[in-house]
Simulated scan of single mutants.
Amino acid sequence: MARDVQITFDCADPAALAAFWAEALGYQVQEPPRGFDSWEQALDAFGVPPEKRNDASAVVDPEGSGPRLFFQRVPEGKQVKNRVHLDVRAAPGLAGDERMAALEAEAERLASHGARRLERHEPAPPLAGGHIVMADPEGNEFCLD
């Protein structure tokens, strides 16, 4: 039986990190619950105090096929390299210079939204097509692949 998957990020600023990943993946911030026109309205109704309103956020694939990404505030900062990371497929079907140019363009676009470029790995055919390692605004590593 297939299962739904949610990917959870521990972070300092859930709203900001959700906005970054929505931009990176073409996702959208999850809509508020039915019956509410905004998250502010829902949180008011639920009695959530203002200082707790950025404790969590989520983004979803607008087409409904990709996993939900959930962002939760934690007190500690990132300490070591991720053991699991996302690969953002920014150049599917491309190879060589064309692939690397597409990855570079996406790296620049995401850097303008707060990502940092960490390293570039050149193509090494036949098994490695080349990729760029990036970090999101809170330092979580991901690859442009």
Score class of each variant (00 low, 15 high):
D61V: 02
K52E: 14
A91W: 11
F71Y: 07
L94W: 05
R83E: 09
V59Q: 08
A91T: 01
L94Y: 05
S57N: 06
F71I: 04
P50I: 00
S57T: 08
Q72D: 14
L94I: 00
P62G: 05
F46G: 13
V80I: 08
P92Y: 02
V74D: 11
Q79H: 11
K81R: 10
P75D: 15
R89T: 01
R68T: 14
P67M: 01
A45S: 03
G47C: 11
V59N: 03
R68Y: 06
G66M: 02
E63V: 11
G47I: 11
R68P: 05
P62Y: 07
R83A: 14
R83P: 11
R89Q: 03
R89C: 08
L69A: 08
P49R: 03
P49A: 12
E51D: 13
G64F: 00
G64A: 07
V88T: 07
N82Q: 15
Q72K: 04
F70D: 14
V84N: 04
A95Y: 09
G47Q: 08
N82T: 06
D87K: 13
N82H: 10
K52Y: 11
V60L: 03
A58G: 15
R89I: 06
P75N: 12
V80Y: 11
A56P: 02
S65W: 07
G64R: 06
S57A: 15
A58T: 11
D61Y: 14
N54H: 10
V60D: 14
H85I: 09
G47V: 13
H85M: 09
S65Y: 09
G66S: 02
R68N: 08
S57D: 10
D61R: 06
Q72F: 15
L69Q: 03
G47W: 13
G77M: 15
E76T: 10
G64W: 04
K81Y: 07
